[in-house]
Amino acid sequence: MPTRELFGKTIEFDDDGHLKNFSDWNEEIAKELAKEEGIAELTARHWLVINYMRREFPRLGDAPTLRKLTKESGVDTKELYELFPKGPMKKAAKISGLPKPKGCI
């Protein structure tokens, strides 16, 4: 299991490069992971998505679907693809400290 030193802590990652433990996540880590995904700065709109993902994950046991997210978070499909270019749900999950989404939709 790959581990990395981030902000003075040893953090475990899974083989997909996502955080192993949901509870290891914090805003600093999110900013760092976002940079690695090519997102230089997380705006309020990014945080809307991230906070929604973090809120829904414990209940669903998986990342929400794009359809659910766009209906409930206030960010629509077009904007989501602009905020997280090239693979919005995977990137948003990664930055939010969630495992890779399991679903096909």
């Binding site: 679907t65 359809r67 659910k68 629509d76 499909t77 077009k78 693809y81 679903g103 939709i105």
Partner: peptide, 16 residues
């Protein structure tokens, strides 16, 4: 499974 109806799915695909 949260699979949208055809019209909604096409709109999602277009917006993507």
């Amino acid at each position: 499974l949260d699979i949208p109806p055809v019209r909604e799915f096409l709109q999602i695909i277009k917006d993507s």
